[in-house]
Every structure is written in C-alpha cells, then in structure tokens.
C-alpha cells in the first residue's frame, strides 16, 4: 500500500468533520467507520475551538488541516502556517480555490503555494483536478501526494471524468492519490478504489445523510471492498458473452 508521507493508513476512508447534526454523531461516525484521517480547518476564534479540538484528539485520528476558502496562494500559505502551529502537524490539505461556483482549484495559485509550502517543510496534499500536466508540476514542486477531485465539492456527483482519473492513476503509478470531493454514494468510493486510488476523502455525503453514522460505515465498507477488488486484479470486460459453465461434457439430449 502506498504511504502518505510515511504514514500507512489501516482504512482508506478520510472523513471531514463539518456539517454533522451534533458532535456526538460526528464522533460516532468516526468510531463506527474506522476512518483514521479527519480533515479540520481554522476560523476566527469564537469560543468553541478548544472543545472541537478535544473531540478530534479524543478520536486518535490523524488531523489533516485544510486551507478551505482561500482564493490566493498567499492566503493559503498563511493559513497553512497557522494550521501547522495550531494542529501540530506538517500535513496540509492545500486548497486554492479558483471559482466560487465550481470551487475548482486555481492551478496557478495551487502550484505556487505547493512550491512555497513544500520548501518550508510542509507535507502537502494538494486538492487538484485530474489534469496530468498540473499533477506533474505539483510533484516537481515537492508534493508527494495528490488529491484529484471526483466532482465539485459538495456536489455528490461521483467520478465526473473517469477517463481523466484513470489516465492520471496510470501516469503516476507510485504516487499516493486520494479522490477528494464530489463523492455522493458508497458506490463512487468503491469505483475510485477499484481504479487503484489509495483513499477517498468525503464529508457532505456522510454528514448530510439522514443517518450519518450508517453512511460513514457504508463508505468505509465500500472503500475497503474497492481496495480489495483492485488488489485482486479484476477480470477484463468483454463485449460478447462467454459461458462460465464448462461446455465440455454437456449431455447430448
């Protein structure tokens, strides 16, 4: 299994921590799914920060702070520096957003921020598209993990460009990759893992489900099933039928 900056994950599910109906349901979703990475953010202090951080620490998971909502490399870099001090980790889920409607990454700002942060000792998880050229540039800039999107954040559309993702996976066979954003159903997670991705990261699909705890479990099971299937080397599809029961020895009736 590919490692994330030296960390191998027992479970390929990374879960966000926002939008849950209650902190208790958030905790339960993590415990019952076995997700071992939690994305977190930082916002203006309003008195609840410590309590939230205590919950995350109590889960014993790896914290992956994000730079959500940053629209420039400078903003993202400053946010990452603040996150490193606050969460005591070099991991950073680097988001430099380029458009408010699609929340798609700004590739130019993303590359600039990746370069600066990697040089400063950060372990960057860039939230990127399936663009292969951008991926190569991000790796050159010092990223050792890539997080291509499935679909726009919060859309639940699944894998919007399977061809592009498949090509990306094949182009960089040694690079750990997480499908981040846009997953809506466990089948999307299974699909991503069957394609050879190393983990999936999602939030809304679990937090906004009618039963977030059950949905978190469903995603974990699907991601694990997909990983197992990928490792088991799936059969190649074919256009025509092929009998599975032996033809030899069939009675002549």
């Amino acid at each position: 299994m590919r490692e994330f900056y030296g960390v191998s994950l027992a479970n390929p599910l990374m879960l966000g921590t926002a939008q849950y109906p209650s902190p208790a349901i958030l905790e339960d979703a993590f415990r019952q799914s076995g997700a071992c990475v939690a994305t977190v953010s930082l916002r203006r202090e309003a008195g609840q920060g410590q309590a939230f951080w205590d919950i995350i620490r109590g889960l014993g998971v790896h914290a992956l702070p994000n730079t959500a909502g940053c629209y420039s490399a400078r903003e993202a870099i400053t946010t990452a520096q603040m996150a490193r001090e606050l969460f005591e980790t070099n991991w950073i889920k680097l988001e430099v957003i380029g458009h408010a409607d699609t929340l798609q990454p700004d590739p130019f700002g993303l590359l600039a921020a990746t370069e600066a942060l990697a040089a400063d000792g950060f372990e960057v998880f860039p939230y990127t598209t399936e663009d292969q050229v951008l991926a190569a540039r991000l790796l050159d800039a010092g990223a050792k993990v890539l997080m291509p999107w499935g679909a726009p954040i919060g859309s639940g559309l699944g894998l919007n460009n399977r061809y592009g993702l498949k090509t990306l996976r094949a182009a960089f066979p040694d690079v750990p990759m997480v499908i981040d954003a846009g997953l809506g159903l466990p089948s999307h997670a299974a699909d991503a893992m069957e394609m050879g991705f190393d983990a999936v990261l999602l939030n809304t699909a679990v937090a906004q489900a009618g039963d977030p705890v059950a949905m978190a479990r469903a995603f974990a099971m699907a991601a694990q099933a997909g990983a197992l299937a990928h490792a088991a080397d799936p059969m190649a599809p074919r256009d025509m039928a092929a009998p599975s029961t032996p033809v030899v020895g069939k009675a002549w009736l």
Binding site: G16, T17, A18, S41, L42, R44, A46, G49, I56, N203
Partner: peptide, 10 residues
Amino acid sequence: LEVLAPMQGG
C-alpha cells in the same frame, strides 16, 4: 489582526 481557532472542516 486575525486570531484563528480549530474548526470543523471538510
């Protein structure tokens, strides 16, 4: 001055 604290995130 910006003073930030841990918060939920995706």
